[in-house]
């Protein structure tokens, strides 16, 4: 690890720091995306079974273009 990429004697520490930052951020992003898929799927399942929110019909009429709702 001596002088990796011209980063000096402590190159390893710098590389690990940046790798840890990238990993932490990646883990957050993956967790949030997986969570989003899980919740969307569950919501779709429930709606397919015919369960609807009381406000859903009204909200759909007001904001028809918002497919995320």
């Amino acid at each position: 690890m001596e002088n990796l990429f011209g980063l000096g004697p402590h190159a390893g520490f710098i590389v690990v720091s940046y790798a840890a930052a990238a990993l932490t951020v990646a883990a957050l992003v993956v967790w949030i995306l997986v969570d989003h898929r899980t919740q969307t799927r569950r919501l779709a399942e429930l709606e397919a079974r015919g369960v609807r929110r009381r406000s859903a019909a009204k909200a759909a009429a007001v904001a028809g273009q918002e497919s995320g709702a």
Binding site: I32, H36, Q39, R49
Partner: peptide, 29 residues
């Protein structure tokens, strides 16, 4: 990054609460 992730996580949380509410309604029905 914080704003992006925060808004995405908020969207998930809203969805989670809807799922929970619908699940309770389904169980009640």
């Amino acid at each position: 990054l914080l704003v992006t992730l925060h808004w995405m996580a908020m969207r998930n949380e809203i969805l989670r609460r809807r799922v929970r509410a619908l699940g309770l309604m389904a169980a009640g029905g």
